[in-house]
Design a protein around this nucleic acid. Structure first.
Lengths: 218, 218, 218, 218
DNA sequence: TATGAATGAGATTTCATTCAT
DNA sequence: AATGAATGAAATCTCATTCAT
């Protein structure tokens, strides 16, 4: 009932993936505490003891879910970046993956951060990896900008870091927004474009020293 | 033991605030589910039945905590905005409040979203209110921009909405970043300035239609 | 139903004793693992959570039961010994207590030794205390003997120790035997007398060096 | 993995012994309940279903273990007795076997008594058999004694039974004592000698009616 | 002869919540 | 205004046992 397949006697590796699927879905929907092992077992179409036999405990199951989703997201972003090393590609890959795996994205963005150290650390590591990508891409974008500009200053480390964090935060918020129905069906591409618009101009401003400053009105 | 005061026979209004203090702290630290009513009662320095007498249930207590903290944040942002109706002031006020009330901020940003409908709605309402501020401020900034620019197009509703979400997300991410030790002690002011830099330029670009577009490299 | 009293709202100290009573009975009858916390709670006439509230866990409950019964037994033996410092009194006190508290005795002798370190140690400590009593009493009896005998050698430390262990073991076995129906209703007094008969003569033999030795037939 | 052999296709009789070995070890170490069928299967180097195929259930496995060890002990004692029909030989044989098979001895002495009817009966039967030996041997010793004494009364049935129980209990206690390191390495022979000393003299006293009685001091 | 896959039943433990004072 | 005593309901986890090959 509600179970994945009706098939019996499935090899372990396959069952484990089914269980992780169920875990991701249940945790994303109900949160760590509210998703019971009974729910997850039923969703996976197996009995509870089998879940314990393969994944040992609720905590380990949660960790395994987070790890799988984090790895998938990082892989998606990395692949996008490796195609052409553009900020646009990275953002686009990120939004596309988040849109295609809304439960995985919710698990990482909403659920995993809520629960103590072990999980939050896992997600923080993934986020750091993505921030690192973005930082590199901002560097590349800065060089691109500089080529087409008369004079350009060099960005300080914390400037780039702050920028990267702002960008990732904006991306996360937009991913949520796009994931909701509330955005009126805006696509991953549009979200990426909106953000690029923002980032590109902000970057240019920053490089040319024409940026906004507190004593300016606005 | 560890309770707030040791004093007895405290008027209801005061006791309630003590309980909310305890609730905010406990929920922010441990999350909704892991914070037990026992913990909260002990933290508040009263017995559990009294908590129930005044706040009825864990859900209501949580809601009351969120409402209080959300109101405080909105009030802070509103006050900042009302001083001079500038985007900068709003952002600055937001960062300052988040920095001064880390537990309240954690409660709103990290914990409240995790839990199903009743609470999430509360937070969504607050977020919507802030997005609304930002939307208005963006409108004001757009007019400001337009005054100094040759030609400026009018922004579409979803554009503004997307921008506002990106901005709020970036702000939240920066608030976390600044809240950590990892930013090397960056202040609320600096975070606000970084973000303004970003937003201001992006906004200009958008208004002038000179923004980045996917077929451009970068 | 089957619960101790029907009384409600009993002070904690009293309830705790009722719980220990129930624990001793249940553990003695069914063993540690087979006695469920449900059984114990029902036997004590309270709900399970109350048992946990007061005694924390099954292990702690078991420990508390063992400790109480061990203390009671030691106290009984000590009191008997202190009345007149005779081996007879000690044995008699021991048998009387074991006969009057068969469940406590079973708990200590049969159940507690079966389960790992923490409990076995508790019982071993109690047994050591009793062996110590017996050792002292053997010393006294030896002096008594010596006064009425022509020549008497001094006992070696390990001889006394071995004797004490044998005596305690014999007493334990007899306590079980007397506790069963199988002894045909033999009383504690008779068991004590039988054992004294044994011990007294054995002691005399040993002191006079007329004891049995392997190369003798028999 | 820690299993006995790695060899496949072993004849049933051999496999069964391997399983009993594993069972005895596991039950002696952890007790009936704590030793899981998984543990035992792993220890035996086979899969769980095979254990069930050969031994049907945990209860039957336990019973088989007890039976094998009890038979071994009884056989050892019987052999010793049959050599020369002396109490000394029986005790000596008993101690020697217990010392050489500590896990079997633990199983019989400590674990088997704990668990309800089915097992306890098994052990009780063995104990009864040994008590019976001892009773016969005491009879023989009594005749021996009588031959060298002026006048000797006849022992009542319960007297002999009590004696036998005391003796067996003392023997068990001494077996534990000698089995520990605490006895300072006392051997089976010494334990047997200590006990014989005790028994021999007690017996003589009893036969001659010169034993200790409650109104005597001591 | 032998095993990987799977489960029903039941154990301990926790927690929000109420009663009686 | 305030609390010690008490519980219903549900969660995680374990284990003896069987199925299908």
């Amino acid at each position: 009932m509600g179970g994945a397949t009706g098939s019996k006697r499935v090899p372990r590796a396959v069952r484990e993936q089914q269980m992780l699927d169920a875990g991701v879905r249940a945790f994303a929907r109900s949160g760590y505490q509210n998703a019971s092992m009974d729910d997850i077992a039923e969703l996976a179409g197996v009995s509870k003891p089998l879940v314990y036999l393969y994944l040992n405990s609720k905590e380990e199951l949660f960790t395994a879910c987070i790890r799988r989703e984090a790895a998938a997201l990082v892989t998606a972003v990395r692949a996008a970046v490796e195609r052409d090393a553009q900020l646009w590609s990275g953002l686009s890959g990120f939004f596309a993956h988040a849109a295609e795996h809304p439960e995985g994205w919710t698990l990482l963005h909403v659920q995993a951060r809520t629960h103590g150290q072990p999980y939050a650390r896992e997600v923080a590591a993934m986020r750091a990896e993505i921030v690192e990508f973005v930082t590199q891409l901002i560097g590349a974008a800065a060089r691109e900008h500089a080529r087409g500009a008369a004079r350009a200053r060099t960005l300080a480390g914390t400037e780039v870091s702050g920028l990267a964090h702002a960008l990732v935060g904006a991306a996360e918020s937009l991913a949520d927004w796009a994931g909701d129905g509330r955005a009126g069906g805006h696509s991953a591409q549009e979200a990426a474009a909106t953000l690029m618009n923002f980032a590109w101009a902000g970057l240019g401003n920053l490089l040319q020293g024409t940026g906004w400053s507190p004593d300016r009105v606005g």
